[in-house]
């Protein structure tokens, strides 16, 4: 498939607010990206016309209950069948920040054995508590399963911004070691918070900005087509978005966030879908 044939659906609802920059990131790389209101999708369109689905960041429905839960329920009630088919066919689904929270609340991630009826993990209140907007370092830990990181070599450190109050990934305490083993064994671990030099944060603030278990910032499902992360790659697309670009003499055209969008486009252009 050619890049310009890739149709990306950036799905939004009241309270979604990172849709435009997410669309821009895909458009910049040549894909056809549309922002679609969820009610439009339900009434007038077919999700299966799209090759990539994105849940962008924001505060869907105000997140007045647990973050992401209302939108997740709304989606499973109204588009459940289409979403199941979409992911069963191995089509890529990306959740950024609130989108990641939606994926977890929906049961799409971690998705140890397909879509789960109840959430298997949670993204809860940061430790230390509070909304935080800052740039963090991430270590790419995926060995090749994740469709969204193929352009980032394992072990590479990248820099992306976070902006969330509820980003601490937790599993049920009694199962967390067993689940971690599963995540590693099945190559579901993608990004871990780390220091500038690429040493994993080992739970230490501020390198781990939210107290996330095992410094996890992003994971994928066992099949690798569903990927969720708390940091915002769409805010690290261009050179001028980088936090220290004024220190550099020579800037590359793009920031690290581009690698994530490029990865999925590479993947799709190499397959026959």
């Amino acid at each position: 498939m050619n890049t310009e044939d890739i149709k990306v659906c950036v799905l939004r609802v009241g309270g979604t607010n990172c849709d435009a920059e997410t669309q821009r990131a895909f458009t910049e790389l040549g894909a056809k990206a549309e922002v679609i209101q969820v009610s439009d999708m339900i009434k007038k369109r077919n999700l299966l016309d799209y090759n990539v689905l994105v849940f962008p960041g924001g505060f869907s429905y105000g997140d007045y209950v647990r973050s992401g839960v209302i939108f997740a329920r709304h989606l499973s009630a109204n588009l459940g069948k289409e979403i199941r088919q979409f992911v069963d066919e191995g089509r890529p689904l990306l959740g950024i920040c609130n989108g990641f929270q939606i994926l977890v609340e929906y049961g799409l991630l971690p998705g140890f054995s397909g879509i789960s009826e109840f959430p298997e993990a949670t993204l809860t209140t940061n430790e230390p508590a509070g909304f935080k907007c800052k740039w963090v370092y991430l270590k790419q830990e995926n060995r090749g399963k994740c469709a969204f990181t193929s352009a980032i070599p394992a072990g590479k450190t990248i820099q992306l911004p976070i902006a969330h109050g509820e980003g601490r990934l937790l599993f049920p305490k009694e199962k967390e070691q067993a689940l971690l083993k599963k995540i590693i064994d099945q190559d579901m671990l993608v990004f871990r918070y780390c220091t500038k030099d690429g040493e994993t944060a080992e739970g230490k603030y501020p390198d781990n900005p939210n107290g996330s278990f095992h410094d996890i910032a992003g994971i994928c499902n066992p099949e690798g087509n569903i990927f969720g992360l708390m940091p915002h790659p769409e805010r690290a697309m261009y050179w001028w978005q980088q936090p220290t670009w004024t220190r550099e003499n020579q800037m590359l055209k793009y920031g690290d966030g581009k690698l994530i969008f490029q990865s999925i486009i590479n993947k799709l252009t190499k397959t026959n879908h």
């Binding site: 607010n17 990172c18 435009a20 920059e21 821009r24 960041g57 509070g130 909304f131 935080k132 907007c133 800052k134 911004p161 902006a163 915002h232 769409e234 805010r235 697309m237 001028w240 978005q241 936090p243 004024t246």
Partner: peptide
């Protein structure tokens, strides 16, 4: 205080 405000959303903040 500044970090509790999202100053990056919209992806257009060139100098933070």
């Amino acid at each position: 205080v500044i970090r509790t405000y999202d100053h990056e959303v919209k992806g257009n903040t060139l100098l933070k």
